[in-house]
Amino acid sequence: MAENSENKKNENAFGDEEKNDSIFDIHSASLREQPLPEEGNERGPWWMYVIIVLTLAFGFFYMGRYLGEVSDRAHVLFTAPPGAEAVEEVEFDLIAEGQRIYTRVCQACHQANGEGISGVFPTLAGAEWVVDKPDYTVLSILNGLRGELVRERATYDGVMPQFGSQLDDQDIAAVVSYIRTSFGNDAGEIQPERVTQIRELTADKSGAYTAETIEEWIARIEPDLEESPEPAED
């Protein structure tokens, strides 16, 4: 409507003069389009109003339900209140838990298949020390391992960080058990109690082990450990 209703000559506010175009041009401009019709004034279908009311209701309900407290706290009303989820104690599976920890913590370096990366991160598959010495892996996880390692397939000279502060005894027992029973290894599991003992016995060791010192420490603590919970190998 706006377009047609307006018929002032364009003496417009910005001082623009309207030039007269040829009759042909003027007509071609108008003939190619139709005027903008004026808006109607319908009310809209009833269901639209239903949607509006329901939306408003839901919006206010939602605000009431989740606004929580007006404070500087984040994460309010996110976790289900305690007791809501039944504390069903799933039976603890050392190997399954170990696999999860391995994927999360060790896999970045030793890779999913335990093969490591030749010359950089040692392979754990069939690694003699992992298989033969149950405590070796525990010690290297607790304090880390550095310096030259001469292994069958390659020589390594990297740094493995310590995970003793990040993983608890149960985690370490789980992941060590997982390594010792996966990638073709078939040594036995070890129990969390043993990790606890080792942690206590090596409490005064600081810094990472090297190939030599780790042997010394194993020799030092071995006699104090209660007998290994697994059947002797070989």
Binding site: M48, I52, T55, L56, G59, Y62, Y66, H75, V76
Partner: peptide, 25 residues
């Protein structure tokens, strides 16, 4: 789920839902 105070986030969620009104209209 971010560390911003929850009530601001909740207001935004509610307002996002309310957007249904102008959109449907």
């Amino acid at each position: 789920g971010s560390p911003l105070p929850t009530w601001f986030v909740t207001i935004s969620i509610a307002a996002s839902v309310m957007m249904i009104i102008p959109v449907v209209v």
